[in-house]
Design a protein around this nucleic acid. Sequence first.
DNA 1: GCATTTATCAAACGTTTGATTAATAGGATC
DNA 2: GATCCTATTAATCAAACGTTTGATAAATGC
Lengths: 254, 254
Amino acid sequence: MINRIAGRSRDPPDATPSLRCKGGPKLSKSLKKDVRNPQKARVSILDAAERAFAELGYGGASIRGIARDADVNQAMIHYYFQNKDQLFDEVIDRRAGAVNAQRNDALDRLFAEGVPTLEELMEALLRPTIEMGHDESRGGSAFARLVVSFSNSADERSRNMAIEHYDPIARRSIAAMRQVLPELDMAAAVRAYLFSISVALSVMARTGRAARLSGGLCNDSDTEETVSTTVAFSCAGIRALAKQAVNQFDENVE
Amino acid sequence: MINRIAGRSRDPPDATPSLRCKGGPKLSKSLKKDVRNPQKARVSILDAAERAFAELGYGGASIRGIARDADVNQAMIHYYFQNKDQLFDEVIDRRAGAVNAQRNDALDRLFAEGVPTLEELMEALLRPTIEMGHDESRGGSAFARLVVSFSNSADERSRNMAIEHYDPIARRSIAAMRQVLPELDMAAAVRAYLFSISVALSVMARTGRAARLSGGLCNDSDTEETVSTTVAFSCAGIRALAKQAVNQFDENVE
DNA sequence: GCATTTATCAAACGTTTGATTAATAGGATC
DNA sequence: GATCCTATTAATCAAACGTTTGATAAATGC
């Protein structure tokens, strides 16, 4: 009933995408931008996409706008990344791996010398995240906002992002918390971890609300103060949940 | 379900050039949906828009999709609301007022009988929010997710939402916290408030992650347990920030 | 020196978007 | 029974959307 004919193939692109794509720049003479620099185009696309997804959401970001911002031709995005979905995945991949590697390394180092304090543990977990969010020069702050806005969403894309990139380190962290604080039961540990991450994410978002509400007294940008405040808040909260669990146990026993 | 009869919008064009150029309702067969009910159309549009904005973001939600979900004609949305932006505002307006009224009332009642404990204060602030997020039947959970995904964003729409609907109660809450805990300085109080709200929002989002990570032990849906856990975590964290401020003062004095 | 591969481009494709319009039906009022 | 008002409709629009295409300049391999 609908004219689905016409010569457009809806087939998914080949696993080897480059064979059918040919072409070259029209402008050969002077005043071309530094062409022949694949690295740079790819990276600037990823940077622009990161900003766009963070500021506009997945649906609000457009391939055209990303291309314009990255100063590349629109088709380049489909040349380096099959489609919008894949582009989003690679934006996440690029940063999440680095931060989680830092967190894993920090955990390795900590537990190599015995069982650390709760404060040491939480700082090892939260510092890499917060520091990336404060790294304005290398573009981490855009990614931070991106993670924040997706981490509390319930759609499938967000769920997959969490499962693939953040659940593994979460499981390890939760186990570590219970090692440091044995009276923390599983349910409480999971909640404590998610609460702590949520606090860290809220400072990463840098919405400017803290400065607005405090009349400029709060400084979103002071990394060290942010880390120490976040760690202090989280550790106290976690100990409270551990104590709550013990109290409930006592009540049941009596 | 509903008869989307006749008038398919993408029908092949008539062979005979019809005289009528633009719209108008077609044949008035029997079994039309309950026409002449302005209230119902308006409300179902708001409900559908709430769900759409929550699940897809502002950019990802479409007027057509909202109309389909609300089972109204697409043009009805522009009849009741000027445009997409205005529709979003009214979605926020509808719920934010109710929750903040509850929180203000709770504060009034608390301080009428002197200065409350920190636990009483935080429960008064967090319970209405959490309860709305758990009110699946009245659609509050969709709004909860909507607020969560926008509260950590830095775009202009989110900032305006915060300034208009959430900054007033935030200012009052922060002042109340400092009344209850005088050693809490302004900057620490602002941070403590934002941290606590962030924790409450994370449980409102109900992403299912807690259940996944805990192997089903954590139950996102138990309102009372969620409230008591959230309050316990927040209060301990707030007291830690108050103590941190005092310690810093001591260090400076020495 | 020729063939292949890679990187880039402009232009188009069909679809979907937010928005508008003219037509009309139902009820109320006169 | 004509008139008016409000609610609702199908049709239509221009713009923007993600994606595909064919061409081609530059780099690389043999």
